[in-house]
């Protein structure tokens, strides 16, 4: 298969590729944001525990 032809998408390259790039960028962003949210929850919990322990 011809790579240049594939990339040209029959003249629709300017629409097809940005659509795919956008969706996959958003998927990657979702993974990153979810991990950060989990880490933040753990940090908050650590702080909470330390406060409880020092308050005791």
């Amino acid at each position: 298969m011809n790579i240049a032809e594939f990339l040209a998408m029959g003249g629709y390259a300017a629409y097809v590729w940005p659509a795919y790039a956008l969706v996959f960028a958003v998927l990657a962003l979702n993974v990153w944001a979810a991990r950060r949210s989990h880490e933040r929850a753990l940090e908050e919990a650590r702080r909470r525990l330390m406060q409880e322990e020092s308050g005791r």
Partner: peptide
Amino acid sequence: LFYGAVLFVRLRGEVVRRERSAAWLREVL
């Protein structure tokens, strides 16, 4: 399935946020 995976990552965080039991949190941390 991607939704399932990302949901679970976020859910772990949400579960920790809602947890009051110090003993278990200590174990996780």
